[in-house]
């Protein structure tokens, strides 16, 4: 394989636990340099998919390659990983914890400690460099662990539910860090069940539910699976306007709501003006990623397993 290969490639991945196919034939291609989201409700199989990709567990079927290696271990020094269940040694100092994580990935300790201090300063954690992990708040410990997963400057960064457990301020820091990693040239693959973050940072995403991939594409493409909605307010409300509007139009206060017709809205607007209803107000709303997500996985499934 060459550098032009995708950062992550998976073909028909299957992982069974007992009789249950928790990962059920997933295909995935994460281009190099992309920020890629794996979205799905709780219990969809996101964590299991990521662990299988990283070689923490072996798939029962299918193949995968990481940075061009079919055996993920071969690439382990160029990969960073933040597991869903965070964990650091409580009695280690923050900078040592970061250096330790780097050392596991082949970074020499001295460099690790230097970078750890720099990165913590940059992330506004300068005061905690020599604090023991057990003295840090949960969110701070999580940021420290995140720094530990990038201290060796990996080519691929895998984050499992990175936003959960962070307050809004730290969530913003995390978004910035993900973007910075991408700008450095890394590929970022992360899972989440919260759409807002994905919507803001992802270049591409896959939506999985019940262990199957239901969608793959850009955020725009995901939103494009749902038609935009139109809200129309007549300038001169008169009976009979409903006959002109599409069949799915429903009254909404003084106005109406309906799906954006496939052929566009221009013809309809012309008719409305000619017939004298006029345009009192008009807005075309693109659906959010969340709406698309609910539509793709189904309303019940979107709720997910009780976490």
């Amino acid at each position: 394989m060459t550098v032009n290969d995708p950062a992550v490639f998976a073909e028909h991945l299957v992982k069974r636990f007992g009789e249950r196919r928790v990962v059920d034939g997933i295909d995935l291609i994460v281009p190099r340099g992309a920020i890629y989201g794996v979205l799905g409700p709780n219990g969809a199989g996101k964590t299991t998919t990521l662990r299988t990709l990283l070689g923490i567990i072996e798939p029962d079927e299918g193949r995968r390659s990481i940075l061009g290696h079919f055996s993920p271990r071969e690439a382990s020094d160029r990969v960073g990983y933040l597991p869903e269940e965070r964990g650091l040694y409580p009695s280690m100092k923050a900078r040592d914890a970061i250096a330790f994580m780097g050392a596991l990935r082949g970074l020499d300790r001295r460099t690790g400690r230097t970078r750890a201090a720099e990165m913590m300063e940059a992330a506004g954690l300068g005061h905690a460099i020599d604090e023991k992990i057990k003295k840090l708040s949960k969110g701070m410990a999580q940021l420290v662990q995140l720094l530990g997963s990038v201290v060796h400057r990996p080519d691929l960064l895998v984050l499992d539910e990175p936003f959960s457990g962070l307050d809004p301020v730290n969530q913003e820091k995390l978004e910035a860090l993900i973007l910075a990693e991408r700008d450095r040239g890394a590929t970022v693959l992360f899972s989440t069940h919260i759409m807002a973050h994905a919507e803001r940072v992802c270049d591409r995403l896959a939506i999985i539910a019940g262990g199957k991939r239901r969608f793959e594409g850009t955020v725009d493409e995901a939103r494009g699976t749902l038609p935009s909605r139109v809200r129309y307010l007549p300038a001169r409300p008169q009976a009979g306007v409903a006959e002109v509007l599409p069949h799915d139009a429903t009254p909404d206060g003084d106005g109406w709501r309906f799906q954006l017709p496939r052929e566009g809205i221009e013809g309809l607007l012309v008719t409305l003006i000619e017939r004298g209803y006029g345009i009192g107000g008009l807005s075309i709303e693109r659906p959010g990623l969340h709406d698309a997500f609910v539509r793709i996985v189904g309303r019940d499934a979107a709720e997910g397993e009780p976490a």
């Binding site: 923490i56 990983y81 964990g87």
Partner: peptide, 15 residues
């Protein structure tokens, strides 16, 4: 200790 504080996953992913 490692199982309790979940460091094991960090180790197992890297090594």
């Amino acid at each position: 200790e490692e199982r309790n504080n979940k460091v094991i996953e960090v180790l197992a992913a890297a090594v």
